[in-house]
Design a protein around this nucleic acid. Sequence first.
DNA 1: CGTTTGACCGAAA
DNA 2: GTTTCGGCCAAAC
Length: 105
Amino acid sequence: MGPDDDRRMRILATVDAIPRGRVASYGQVAAEAGLPGRARLVGRLLRELPAGSRLPWHRVVRSDGSIAGRGDGEAMTEQRRRLVREGVTLEGRGRVPRERFWRGC
DNA sequence: CGTTTGACCGAAA
DNA sequence: GTTTCGGCCAAAC
């Protein structure tokens, strides 16, 4: 088990700790996992999650509250659906309001 | 090997 | 509001 696995584990544990009905940004998750400035690593990790993962990956959004991904994309639609299902409303151009971010922002 | 590419971010223009 | 840029760095090419 290398240091890479350790980092991944902490990131996944952090995502897993995001409360239901709230969201966190990629950078927030990275910082919380002790890896400030490594937001992209979080994104890459979540992208590579197996289809049936139990992790609440849908609670991770961009720092401005928008859903990550380009134009189309299954993951985007699925993420919106999951968020709405647990009470997270998307305002304006599909952005999650600041108040819903984990521990302010 | 070198280069490009991101489920990103914050500041600057 | 927007695009650009430097920072980040593992995987894909």
